[in-house]
Design a protein around this nucleic acid. Structure first.
Lengths: 194, 194
DNA sequence: GTCTATATTGTGATAGAC
DNA sequence: GTCTATCACAATATAGAC
């Protein structure tokens, strides 16, 4: 299940660098040569671990999704209150963004999706569906316990919050004093409260 | 002032195609060859009108910002109620997204910003600042007239809504039945209402 | 303004030695 | 697993004829 277990130490370093590059410059913005320089190996060696760029891209997204899934599990175990869970969720994005204004891997790849291989797009979709169903459950819990109003479906609230967090990182890259994902989440949630 | 006036008919067609390509596959996702094929001219002819890709990119963003500015002026003349103005604003994004799931030009370029020339990034920033100040004014009007609560500053509400709309397009590319920018805006505004 | 032709560099990918 | 060497092709860009 854990993709990392299958990766050799070198492959791990490559995947780390590739992920950072995706978050910084996007899939179409980096080459095997960039990875080569960052990781201190020749291009041919990168190809030994990941034969094609598509294979590398898919591996990066799968690993990222796995890490995210683990983080969501941790949140569930740590917090029971829906509001706390959502704030912890927003903090995942805040932490990523705080790291040199990196984007969410799948936010970046979602933007580029029209030019990507379907194998990559499929994994990106999986990431979003996973996030949406987790968020939907959190909103359902909040609505059932009466903490939030029920003007909108939990499904709509989930997609709205996810869009907000992804967008906050995107916009935050181009404004001088960005609020960041966490604060935009506060603004949104305070409006949802009953 | 109007950049279009300075562009010859051929240059206009090129800019149109380039803008569509930016919205679909991003700045790093298209080449002069793609433009060449779409517009029916040779690569060298494209270079005659726009000597470098950066010059072309800057021209596309300037024109896009100008068009957006015009649209905002029209909204101001057509609607006086802040709520109506914001819904019309969201419809600008909805229309763009409805067109083959195209992204906002500056949303796409904002994501790619780390790999772009500063001349392009500067124009992208201008676009966002323009939008934020327009949104801020709309929220201020709504708060002064008592339509909305004042839990958050108009500035924060502006950046939150902008992030939401940009993010809704991004996420909308990778989910099966996207809400679209307009509906996410409805969800957000209903929470802001006093 | 548009074309052909070409220069130059970058890119994804492979072959084969060590 | 990593390397050197190389391929085929795509990218941005320029020179110069028409």
């Amino acid at each position: 299940m854990n993709t990392d277990t299958e990766l050799s130490p070198s492959a791990l370093r490559i995947a780390d660098v590739a992920q950072a590059l995706v978050q910084q410059v996007g899939y179409n913005g980096f080459s095997f040569e960039h990875i080569s320089q960052a990781v201190g190996m020749r291009k041919a060696s990168i190809h030994h671990h990941f034969p094609t760029k598509v294979v590398l891209g898919v591996a990066v997204v799968k690993r990222y999704t796995q890490q995210f899934e683990d983080a969501l599990g941790q949140i569930d175990r740590q917090f029971s209150a829906p509001h706390q869970r959502l704030l912890a969720y927003a903090d995942l994005f805040e932490t990523t963004f705080g790291h040199d204004h990196r984007l969410c891997v799948c936010g970046m790849l979602g933007a580029e999706s029209s030019s990507l291989d379907e194998a990559v797009n499929t994994e990106v979709r999986r990431f979003f569906e996973l996030n949406l169903s987790w968020l939907q459950r959190a909103f359902q819990d909040g609505q059932r316990s009466g903490v939030w109003h029920q003007r909108h479906s939990a499904q709509d609230l989930a997609e709205t919050l996810l869009s907000l967090l992804e967008g906050a990182m995107l916009v935050g890259r181009s404004v001088s004093q960005p609020m960041g994902p966490r604060r935009t989440c506060d603004v949104f949630l305070s409006g949802v409260t009953a």
